[in-house]
Amino acid sequence: MTPSEEEMLRAFEERHGRELQKKFSAAAVAVCGLGGLGSNIAVSLARAGIGRLILIDFDKVDVTNLHRQQYKASQVGMYKTDALSENLREISPYIRTEIHTVKVNEENASELLKSADIICEAFDSAQAKAMTANIVLESFPEKYLVCASGMAGIGSCNTIKTRRISKRFYICGDGVSDVSENGGLFSSRVMLCAAHQAHTVLRILAGEFEV
């Protein structure tokens, strides 16, 4: 039986403490790209009881996504935004999700992201990553940005790190492992990078800004 909203909140408070949970529940976090990074970030944040998630992706679930992304075989062909909000609601039934099934570009980014406190960049193409970082840092100097770069291949887990570039700009990954040169993507290493991003979000909300 699905727990009531009150029961869910009490459980979050028991695990995170009441004060911190208040901050998690009040937060709005945008996840740009719902692939290997974004779907895993969203699951971690939903489990943490983040109040509102803004989920952005134009793509549909493909069978080649299932090896690392938080979708089910039965969801192949669905828009990732729809499939992920369905899955998140099974995990955390009272989470508020705002979905945008669009491709982020320089024209629409500011409108899509304006209500987020923290923005996670979780795209796969290097150009989309750089474009998002530039737009967010230029248009929203007051928001926090958590990017990822370098998590492809079967290299060591221990090279995936979080770096703080400036006051509100963090980047997770090994910085160098490009998917085109590293023989694909592996669920565990991509999830590790996503976990760095999600945990950075929680630490920012907790007022812990150093890495």
């Binding site: 750089a130 990822a148 770069s149 370098g150 492809a152 492992s177 993507l185």
Partner: peptide, 10 residues
């Protein structure tokens, strides 16, 4: 100066 170079994959 910090130059962040993004590589593909996600």
């Amino acid at each position: 100066v910090e130059i962040v170079n993004f590589v593909g994959g996600g």
